[in-house]
């Protein structure tokens, strides 16, 4: 899923201080699971903002709403009848949700309430780690199911680099060396010989480098 982290409340206060009527808009998907932008976080943030502005002697309307998803037209339509009641929307969705909401409600300023971080997994309660950079051309079949693009600090396709030490990365002793993991897994799979296959120069055009991407699936279009 998409992993996001809360923005510091001081930063949010700076961004929203000039709007008198604010909708704090959560999302029920990824940001709910990673506890950064779901209903609960909306409640807490809205309450904190209300208190901050009351204390400052400012009269503000700060409402709460959480949509099933902010990355789908149909759910975003649910706020169409109330959007005019607000001067701005503080969205706790990922960057996708924030933008999609902004596109739909063109004349309403949108402020992001979270920092969208990466595509990752719930490693343990309160800890999420990156697993995918959405390069658009998956090579996991050749790397023992472990991705060197998202998990190696140098995205080395033929690793490990000389900085791998005791299974850890040169940039951080707490970070596993992706290539150590790849080699361990290849060994366990009885495929260590595959290590010597040289990975060819990668076509990055399906990645961010190729410009904004679109997936068109005519088979599912109506």
């Amino acid at each position: 899923m998409i992993i996001a982290d809360k923005k510091p409340i001081e930063e949010i206060i700076q961004e929203v201080k000039d709007y008198d009527r604010l909708l704090v808009l959560g999302c029920n998907e990824c940001v709910t699971v990673c506890e950064a932008g779901g209903k609960k976080e909306v409640e807490v943030l809205a309450s904190a903002l209300r208190m901050h502005f009351i204390k400052e002697g400012k009269e503000k309307k700060i409402d709460e709403r959480t949509l099933e998803r902010q990355c789908d037209h149909e759910y975003l339509e649910e706020i169409r009848d109330v959007i005019d009641q607000y001067d701005a929307v503080l969205s706790l969705a990922c960057g996708v949700g924030v933008q999609f909401t902004a596109e739909k409600y063109h004349s309403t300023p949108l402020i992001p309430g979270v920092n969208t971080c990466f595509l990752g997994a719930n490693e343990q309660r309160g800890m999420w780690t990156e697993r995918c950079q959405a390069c658009g051309a998956c090579i996991l079949a050749r790397t023992g199911g472990i991705c060197p693009i998202s998990r190696c600090a140098k995205r080395v396709m033929n690793g490990p680099c000389g900085g791998s030490s005791a299974g850890k990365c040169e940039i951080n002793k707490d970070l596993d060396c992706a290539w150590q993991l790849i080699i361990d897994r290849l060994r366990d799979l009885g495929r260590l010989d595959d290590y010597e296959i040289v990975a060819p120069i990668k076509d990055w055009s399906t990645e961010r480098s190729g410009g904004p991407r679109t997936v068109v699936r005519e088979d599912v279009q109506v």
């Binding site: 609960k40 409640e43 807490v44 309450s47 904190a48 208190m51 009351i54």
Partner: peptide, 11 residues
């Protein structure tokens, strides 16, 4: 108890 319960009391 949740954070929001505590905040609501202050609110």
């Amino acid at each position: 108890i949740d954070v929001i319960h505590i905040l609501r009391a202050f609110e």
